[in-house]
Structure formats: structure tokens, C-alpha cells
Amino acid sequence: MPMPPSRRLALVTGASLVLLAGCGSSSDSGSDGNASQRPASSSLIPVVASTNVYGDIVEQIGGAKVDVTSVISDPDQDPHSYEANTQNQLALSKAKVVVENGGGYDDFIDRMLKSSNSSAEVINAVKVSGKTAPKGGELNEHVWYDFPTVRKIADNVAAALGKADPGSAAAFTKNAETFKAKLQPLETKETQIKKDHGGEAVAITEPVPLYMIDASGLVNKTPAEFSEAIEEGDDVSPKILQATLAQFTDKQVKALVYNEQTSGPQTEKAEAAAKAAGIPVVPVTETLPQGKDYLGWMTANVDALASALDK
């Protein structure tokens, strides 16, 4: 099922929405609307990515040929509560390529595209992944934690950029192949975790890292009612909270994988219970931490998971 509107990336709309004229192109656009500027050039392919995760992937493949605006780039910003601004709208109106997550995660992109009459090539990561909701369950839309999906996204980005700049198509394809080759060590590490720790139980606060957890052969023991409530911004019932905390006090799990970007009183109780029981906590985020690229970020995530399980 799509994520409830209260937890989706929200779009500020209204009759007063006016496109800002004369703004330069930007490489990132954070929640405050301020962007780091670089000279605009008609030779660059303007690209908008819903988050800096996809923005970085585009930059890895497009190199010096792209001008990327990442709508969400602040590592302290909860993507679920993000409010877009007029600068985002302007960037989308100029984009030749747009990369969105889809799956209800960043619906504001589609709404802004419609209002700007954009003709951009749109890459929807969830559609590219081919993933669907399990019977009776909800889709885990956090597909950037799934490396086979990221491989497909890289190919789609290269194709879209090649369409925008046919003369550079071969270079984009080559860059995508280089990027995908660098994903292989991450998949190898997941395979090693599965070999060493397959079947072991872990806990989560949200579904964000589940693709990485599944690929590593681990079992998520957290009550679904807990992680779903946290993701949707709802309160967890005392009974479910007690069952969640018991995972740690009874040492039913080997690690807690904790989404730092949506912490609150109930997730903090889970973190405190894990630490009190001597259970390692593995922090993860939904967007790139400051100074990290996608590959370095994911390498750190997989290494941290392996290290926690080895303790």
C-alpha cells in the first residue's frame, strides 16, 4: 500500500506558488531552499533527483556532463516530512532527466512535474526494480538499499543521459559499467555475512535497511506493528512497545539497525534497551551523510552490520 499522506514527502501548493525567475542551476537544493551554485551551461544536461542518493548516482555516471539538483540533500532532514519549494519547481521545469524513488516515497515530484508541463525523461526507481507489495503486506519502497536494483537504475540513468546527449552516450554507458563493477564488492560482503551469520535475528526501527538485511541472510524479528507505526509517524501501543523492547532485554537479536533520521521517544527507548543489553546498534540513514558518496556510504553500512554481528 502507498505510504499515508502524512508520511509522504509533502508538496507545498497553492495559488501563491510562483516560479523564481533568474535563478542559476544548482548541484544541491536543501530543505531551506539555499543551494550551492555553479555556472550554468547549455552544454550540461540538467537533472533533478528527489534525494542526494540518486543525485550522486547520476553524477557518478554523468560526470562533468550533468548539472544535478538533489531536492533533499540535508542529512538531518527526514525525507517523509520534507516540504518542497519554488526553487525545486523551477529546477524540475528545466530538467531533461528526473530520477525519483516512487512507491509513494516522493510523490511530490510527480505533482510538480504535472504542474510544470515537463517533458523530462523520468526514472522511477521502484518501477525499475520490479518490486511489488507482498500479498497482504506493504511495499518496502527503500530500494536504494537493494544493490541489484541500483544496478538497473545505473543502466536506466546511462540510457536517459545518452538520449539527452547522444554524442556522450558511449561514455555514460562506460561510466555505468564502472559504477556497477564497484557495487560487486558490496554484494560479495552481503554474501559473506550470509555465510557467517545466515539465519541470525536482528531488529529494526523502520523498514529502511530491510533489503540489505534480507540479502545478508538475516531475519528481522521486530514486530511489524512497531516498524510500520514508526515509519508512518504513529504511536506504538504499549503492548507492541513492550514486545519490541523484550527483543533486547531477552537478547533475542544480535543487533539493532536504527534509522537515525526518524528517531523519537519510542525508537530512543529501543536504542537504549539495546545498549543496556550490550546489543550493538547499527545506525543507518535515508540520505547521504555529509561528505559521503553512494558507494562509500553503502560500504560503511555493510561493514558496520558485519562488525556488529561479529561481536
Rank of each mutant, 00 (worst) to 15 (best):
D155P: 00
A159G: 03
K163C: 05
R7Q: 11
A255T: 04
I279H: 10
D106V: 02
F108Q: 10
K180N: 11
S25N: 07
R7K: 03
P79M: 00
I61F: 00
V97F: 11
E100P: 00
L210G: 12
A255G: 12
A215E: 09
L288P: 00
L245M: 06
Q87V: 11
T13N: 08
G162C: 04
N259L: 02
L19H: 13
A277K: 02
S16L: 10
P166N: 10
V157W: 00
P79R: 01
A125E: 11
P265L: 01
V12S: 08
N52H: 03
Q89N: 12
P4V: 14
P280M: 03
I109N: 06
D76G: 03
S81T: 15
G233K: 09
P209I: 04
G33R: 01
Y105I: 12
G199L: 05
A201K: 15
V284L: 01
A224K: 15
Q247A: 04
V58S: 02
I123K: 09
A171G: 15
K239C: 05
L295Q: 07
G217M: 03
A276G: 11
G199I: 11
P5F: 08
E225W: 13
K152G: 02
A21R: 11
Q192H: 09
V126T: 01
A160V: 02
P39H: 06
E260C: 01
A273F: 02
E260S: 06
D165W: 15
F172V: 12
S41T: 06
A40M: 09
N117V: 14
R8Y: 06
T13A: 14
M298S: 03
F147M: 09
K94N: 12
A229L: 05
L161V: 01
Q89G: 04
N259D: 08
E232W: 03
G14Q: 08
K65F: 01
A176W: 15
A91P: 00
P148K: 04
A300W: 04
Y105R: 05
V150G: 06
V253E: 07
K195G: 07
N101S: 06
E225Q: 12
V281S: 11
L295K: 02
V71E: 10
Y82G: 03
T267A: 09
A170S: 10
P75E: 00
E200T: 14
A181V: 11
M112W: 12
K174A: 15
L241V: 10
A276Y: 12
K239E: 10
E268C: 04
N101D: 02
Y211G: 01
N301F: 15
T86S: 14
Q290N: 06
Y145P: 09
Q184M: 04
A255C: 05
V58G: 02
A224Y: 03
V68I: 04
T244Y: 15
G278C: 10
A276T: 03
V282M: 07
K194S: 12
Q192D: 12
K94F: 10
S81V: 07
T69D: 13
E228D: 12
N259Q: 03
D235W: 09
V66G: 02
K195Q: 14
M3P: 00
G22K: 08
G33L: 01
K194N: 13
V143E: 08
V66H: 05
H197E: 08
